[in-house]
């Protein structure tokens, strides 16, 4: 049935949760809804995907099926930008979306793209153009959000079997913050709670760093890689007062992934089927997934 079909691809879950977050922000947190911005992100991403798929896509699959399969990923990237990146200029928004999608086709090693598309788009727009920004405070730190984001995030990552990534990053980051804020500086506990319950941090931990295509294949290597990101991000955030440090560090750490994959051999990521999916369907999805730019 329709619902069962939906559950086969974890990306649909991600889209669902991302749309919940965006609606939550607009309707409950009273964000100013920047429709022109969201439309720019989505339109540019989709057009870029269509164009690059046409010229650079793997020709062994039909164009239409490649597009059908890659569109959910494009929507995820667009939501990622809508949730995290702000700008006053339509050109900057278009640039961020273009960079996100184009990087999947242009920056590839061993058939795998290097950068998390939306993370790269965000970093490019903020640091290279200087005309976009990231609002770490936009989620506030209500306990309800903490709970909601964690649960929803948990489901998403268990669907794609990469919970280790989230926990390694978040655990290390939170532990370092705890040591610094509570043990060393002696702030009261609610000071620390406010630091780790920001929606932006959780969104990053569960929806950005977990992208299965841009993390090391080997489990231990992957955990260490996440911890490294957490340590550097903690340093930049705490001592250099940088906002959005985890995203920047993630982008900088992603070129290491092919090297780590070379040193630590492991089977590449595969979408594990939900029980309802038969072997043939699973094989198709994995063949397509590993060969296309999604």
């Amino acid at each position: 049935m329709f619902l069962q079909k939906l559950f086969k691809d974890a990306r649909y879950f991600q889209i669902l949760f991302q749309s919940i977050f965006l609606s939550y922000g607009i309707y409950f947190l009273h964000w100013k809804a920047e429709w022109w911005l969201y439309i720019t992100y989505f339109a540019t991403s989709i057009i870029t995907q269509l164009a690059f798929e046409y010229f650079l896509g793997k020709k062994e699959f039909a164009y239409s099926s490649r597009i059908a399969f890659s569109i959910p990923s494009v929507i995820i990237s667009s939501f990622g930008l809508s949730l995290l990146l702000k700008t006053n200029d339509v050109e900057i928004a278009a640039l961020a979306a273009f960079v996100s999608i184009a990087s999947k086709f242009l920056v590839r090693i061993n058939g795998k793209h290097i950068f998390n598309p939306s993370a790269l788009g965000i970093i490019t727009a903020i640091f290279l153009t200087g005309k976009a920004w990231f609002s770490p405070g936009q989620w506030g730190s209500g306990a309800v959000i903490l709970f909601g984001v964690c649960c929803l995030g948990f489901i998403v990552v268990t669907r794609v079997q990469k919970l280790d990534t989230s926990l390694a990053f978040l655990g290390t980051f939170a532990a370092l913050l705890f040591i610094r804020q509570i043990i060393y500086l002696g702030w009261p506990l609610d000071f620390f709670v406010q630091s780790i319950s920001t929606g932006s941090l959780l969104l990053f931990s569960f929806f950005m760093i977990t992208d299965p295509k841009t993390i090391p294949n080997h489990t231990i290597a992957r955990v260490l890689w996440c911890m490294l990101i957490a340590v550097v991000a903690f340093y930049l955030a705490t001592f250099k007062f940088m906002n959005g440090a985890p995203i920047l560090v993630l982008v900088l750490a992603q070129p290491l992934v092919p090297l780590i994959d070379k040193l630590f051999k492991a089977k590449p990521f595969e979408w594990k089927p939900a029980s309802a999916m038969n072997k043939k369907e699973t094989r198709f999805i994995n063949t397509v997934y590993n060969n296309l730019s999604i």
Binding site: L29, H30, S135, P136, G137, Q138, G140, Q194, T198, N243
Partner: peptide, 10 residues
Amino acid sequence: IECTNYRNAN
């Protein structure tokens, strides 16, 4: 300017 550790609202 905007506040980075609290929510900003108009």
